[in-house]
Amino acid sequence: MDNGSTVQLFDYDVFNANLDQLDTNSKTLINTINLYSYAMAERDSHFKDALLESDVLLPDGVSIVIASKILANKKIKKIAGADLHKFLLTKLNNEGGKCFYLGSSETTLKKIIERISKEYPSVKVGVYSPPFSSQFNATENADIINAINSFKPDVLFIGMTAPKQEKWAYMHKDQIDAKIIGSVGAVFDFYAGTVKRPSSLWIDLGLEWMGRLVKEPKRLWKRYLYYGPIFFYILFKEKLKRSLKIDGAL
């Protein structure tokens, strides 16, 4: 990854700059990393490859911010998928660009189109609601790629949840005719209003994860209450290993 400055956390080069420093003139695959995706990638090598091969890997979670401070002694700013989404829409609106939404239901996509027409009237929007399946077959993939490339978007937003969206983007990046490919997951529902994002108070306090857990406990409990302790166990284990290595060298 050479798109702006980065900080190395575990095996990953995590973005550590402002979004306006992104190179948006060449094909760029943007993913996010948080405690859930990190823990999942440790058990799924294909997912890990997809994250490692990101051109930009955004620190989407207070856990990653904490890890940066503990392991690299660097203060980084959390950048959520919603932040990337807003930044790119603003840029496209200023330039009269085009974006394409891949994922979610027809109803959600319709709400996204309606909202963009009001907030970003200069942006042209294309959408595609793929089949709800764990993996697309060859025909389905061909139909999806054809729909995207026929529209020729400047930005492709993918919202199919992790790790499906990252794997798909990684596998098909070279076939996609778009400059920016961003896996933004829950942003589709947040922007459409079908799922309410926690308020700015939760976000500013670094507790957005708690706000989401309160709203969707059945879906998200495992992400935070199971994978959370696993992540911090790995984090402090890595910190201890590094400390022992330094002490042994003295």
Rank of each mutant, 00 (worst) to 15 (best):
K152R: 10
A82M: 12
E42N: 14
A17M: 12
D11P: 07
Y12H: 04
R115Q: 09
I33C: 06
I158Y: 00
L88D: 08
G248M: 07
L240G: 00
I79L: 07
Y227W: 13
L89K: 05
L109D: 08
W168K: 06
A138Q: 14
Y120F: 08
F100G: 04
E95S: 08
D13M: 15
N141T: 03
E114S: 06
Y12W: 04
D20N: 08
T194F: 07
I234K: 14
L9Y: 02
G159D: 05
A147D: 13
I64P: 01
Q135W: 12
S45M: 06
S104M: 06
S5M: 14
F87M: 06
A249W: 09
L51H: 03
I246Q: 12
K222Q: 15
A39W: 12
E216L: 11
L71Q: 00
L240T: 07
D174M: 07
C99N: 10
Y224V: 00
G4C: 03
G96I: 05
T107E: 15
V214A: 12
I230G: 04
F188V: 03
V14A: 01
I66W: 07
A249K: 13
I180G: 05
Y233W: 15
F136W: 08
Y36V: 14
K69C: 06
P229D: 03
T6L: 06
L250N: 13
K110V: 13
N16D: 11
S26R: 11
S37P: 00
K239S: 01
F151D: 11
D174H: 09
L58H: 03
N34W: 02
A192C: 07
N73F: 05
G159Q: 05
K239R: 09
D177W: 10
Y233D: 11
E42G: 12
L92N: 03
D2Y: 14
K27C: 03
F87E: 05
S26G: 10
S37C: 00
D13K: 15
L213D: 00
V127K: 11
P121K: 03
A192F: 03
F15V: 10
V155G: 09
K215N: 15
Y226L: 01
V127Q: 11
Y226D: 01
V62R: 15
R242V: 11
E119H: 09
H46F: 14
L102V: 04
I116T: 01
R197F: 07
Q175V: 11
V127N: 10
A142N: 14
S183Y: 12
A162K: 08
Y191W: 06
D23F: 03
D20G: 02
R197C: 09
P229K: 07
K98M: 04
I234F: 13
Q165Y: 00
V127T: 15
S133I: 14
P198I: 00
S117V: 02
R219S: 08
L250Q: 13
G126E: 11
I113D: 15
R197K: 11
V56F: 01
N31R: 09
I113W: 13
Y128E: 08
S54P: 08
G248H: 09
P131G: 05
K245R: 13
Y170H: 08
I33Y: 06
E114I: 01
G228P: 01
D13P: 13
Q175K: 13
A138W: 11
I33A: 02
V65G: 00
F231R: 02
A178P: 02
K69A: 08
A80D: 10
G228R: 03
